[in-house]
């Protein structure tokens, strides 16, 4: 009875339309890229492109972690606070050597993720309330530890190296970004755990029947997110000469925008790292473009807000399209 040889009977036109929709965000990216090249002669310079990469690295790394959480049908509203706490830890421990500082900040990230993951995955508390609570908790801890000061962040030379130097003519930070995307892409799309995460995000009861320990999977997604926030904090301290808790906290909004803009669904189980990469690309070009064109900060924030709303509309549009047939 089964006949796998039947090919989809849809015509070339329909296929084109479907390709167009499935790659809509890629097209947006390309159009924006071309448009910016014409709009500003500074845009297409090596210096500016590297600058975009430097500005995107922390965001991109965090967006990878957030993608995993969102695919598991959650959101981590405490991600930027974890980043802040890790960065503060890093800076405070730099007198004990950079290895201690880096390891400690990553451990702090993992512990934060464990707290979120335990409460959400095991206790089954609502993820919005939990991460809203830990957002305030982690931020407060970071403020207490740093005593609210601006901290000089690069006392160890390795951080200046990560932040300023290049390997083979490409900024060191770019390697962090690309390697994170590759590792997360593989983790999400090529491992058993990744597949189980998709199953859990799509349909928790069915995933359970399929023998998946969904509590562990969800807990794991928050732990991984905590971990990558820890690593991202190393990059953050490398990039900025001074760290202030407030700076880090602003990242949350951008990270969620990037993930949703890429097309990872807030309803869980649909999305991917490739999409997040495109989302990051679009977001980074818009942010950079607005700076190049000299648009005032308030208006930049306004545009970012509009982008998030549009991203949510796009998410809803995609959801309906999936339910259409």
């Amino acid at each position: 009875m089964s006949d796998l040889s039947i090919n989809e009977s849809t015509g070339i036109k329909k296929r084109f339309v479907r390709f167009f929709f499935s790659q809509a965000m890629l097209l947006v990216f390309i159009v924006l890229f071309i448009a910016m090249s014409f709009a500003s002669d500074k845009f297409l310079t090596t210096g500016n492109l590297f600058n975009i990469i430097r500005q995107s690295t922390v965001l991109g790394m965090m967006a990878c972690g957030m993608t995993i959480v969102i695919i598991g049908k959650g959101v981590d509203l405490s991600a930027a606070s974890i980043l802040a706490l890790c960065a503060v830890t890093n800076v405070m421990l730099q007198p004990f050597g950079y290895i201690t500082a880096i390891v400690a900040s990553i451990i702090v990230g993992i512990v934060c993720g464990l707290i979120n993951g335990f409460l959400i995955g095991k206790v089954k508390a609502n993820f919005i309330i939990v991460t809203l609570g830990t957002q305030i908790l982690f931020t407060a801890m970071a403020l207490i530890v740093s005593e609210g000061r601006n901290l000089k962040s690069r006392t160890e030379p390795i951080f200046s190296y990560i932040g300023k130097e290049s390997i083979l003519g490409i900024p060191v930070m770019a390697y962090f970004l690309v390697i994170t995307f590759i590792i997360f892409g593989v983790l999400l799309h090529k491992t058993i755990g990744g597949r189980r995460l998709f199953a859990t995000g799509l349909n928790n009861p069915a995933a359970k029947v399929a023998g998946i320990n969904t509590s562990n999977i969800i807990m794991g997604s928050y732990v991984i997110n905590g971990f990558i926030c820890g690593v991202a904090s190393v990059v953050l301290t490398s990039r900025l000469p001074r760290i202030r808790v407030g700076t880090a906290s602003e990242y949350l909004f951008d990270v969620i925008t990037i993930v949703v803009l890429g097309g990872t669904a807030l309803t869980g189980g649909v999305g991917g790292i490739y999409k997040t990469a495109i989302g990051l690309g679009i977001f980074a070009i818009i942010a950079n473009g607005m700076s190049l064109l000299g648009i005032p900060y308030e208006f930049q924030q306004m545009v970012k807000g509009i982008i998030l709303v549009l991203a949510v509309l796009y998410d809803e549009f995609n959801r309906r399209k999936r339910l259409l047939y």
């Binding site: 597949r195 998709f198 199953a199 799509l202 349909n203 009861p205 069915a206 995933a207 029947v209 399929a210 189980g269 649909v270 999936r322």
Partner: peptide, 13 residues
Amino acid sequence: RTESVIQGFSVRE
């Protein structure tokens, strides 16, 4: 609908 098959997964998955 909700348990024996994951509706949003492909046949392969």
